[in-house]
Design a protein around this nucleic acid. Structure first.
Lengths: 209, 209
DNA sequence: ACGATATGAATGAATG
DNA sequence: CATTCATTCATATCGT
């Protein structure tokens, strides 16, 4: 497995606007998360219980993930939405109105293969904890203890922690040296800058900050 | 009762190969529908107009199909998704150089007459029972036929603009449906579209670069 | 054995 | 939040 397609170069906009004629649709501009980005996202999702990050959190997260490749806020937003939705959906298909039973047998082996396991080549004893979005920086704020709600049902209260500053310079979180480099901050230009972002979502937008 | 009524014998597909043809022994990862399963799926698709079964239907369908071989909910789900998508895709090309179809209201049962032809096995008379999808005792279960038949559009429009038609059918409805966002630079662009403004993310999702 | 095609699976992006 | 669409990847199967 490891469907991770080849190292997606972040140039992303590579193809650019399907040249040819007007009508520029950033084709192929679908964000392709890198393994590291996915790893982190899952960490946030499972370890931190983040399910529907708020605008601020989204920004922070995306900022942090940007270290690993191009990414925008909406990507993070959609990622969480999808991940959550799919998890639920899976349950919906498999779990038929099953009465509360204790046997833990048949209830699984159905949908998602669940964590694809991002096997990075890290040492067997990694433990790069403290990666919680919230820790790493200021001394004061610290993870408010995860609401320990992995089992869902917490959906609405995930706004426990507050500031998640992404102190990039701490030089701390560098727990694993990513293998294939290319990370870097690439100056990705959007060829089609006409409507690249400011107007992509629903077209509206605004002023509000 | 024994909900776990899984016909163990089917397992990989061993016994299901009664088609008298090939395909026997393929323990691979991916689900390989048996001829019977395909037959039924197509029946549902074409005869019943099922295109996007909902969770419950999926459960029922998969339960029924399980008689013919191993199958899980997700398989059914994906099957319909793919079938629908591919049919559309295929048609997209077929209808490419044709008169601008007027796209009348496709609000009726009329799945295109193309492809039905389910070449089933040699069995001269298969005769699968009627519809007994309903497996539970509870009432309410009925033939899965939920032909909603939303035509979606055979729109052969250029790319993927969903039809932005304001239902103007003669009058039995007064719903104005518009929503699509995305400002395009396309010639057709004119009506539908625009803001949705949901004040929750947009501002945040968008980020400065 | 390959290469082409069909089709299952996965997931980003949207819409309602 | 549920549902749906589009795209792409992975693999099975078939043709030559």
């Amino acid at each position: 497995m490891d469907p991770q397609q080849q190292p997606a170069n972040e140039d992303a906009s590579g193809g650019s606007c399907k040249g040819g004629s007007f009508l520029c649709r950033q084709s192929s501009t679908r964000w392709t998360p890198t393994t590291d980005q996915i790893r982190i996202l899952k960490e946030l999702y499972y370890n931190n219980g983040v399910r529907s990050p708020s605008a601020e959190q989204i920004q922070k997260i995306s900022a942090r993930l940007r270290q690993y490749g191009k990414i925008e806020g909406k990507n993070v937003f959609y990622w969480f939405q999808n991940h959550k939705a799919r998890e639920r959906q899976k349950k919906r298909f498999t779990t038929s109105s099953d009465v509360p039973m204790q046997r833990s047998s048949v209830a699984n082996a159905s949908w998602k293969p669940e964590d694809p396991l991002i096997h990075s080549n890290k040492s067997p004893s990694i433990n790069h904890t403290g990666y919680s979005l919230a820790s790493s920086s200021s001394a004061g704020v610290l993870p408010v203890g995860q609401m320990g709600n992995y089992g869902y049902g917490s959906g609405t209260m995930e706004k426990s922690f507050r500031d998640c500053s992404i102190s990039s310079s701490g030089g701390n979180t560098n727990e694993v040296s990513i293998s294939h480099g290319w990370v870097g901050i690439d100056p990705y230009y959007s060829s089609c800058s006409f409507f690249e972002k400011r107007k992509s979502l629903h077209g509206a937008l605004d002023e509000e900050q």
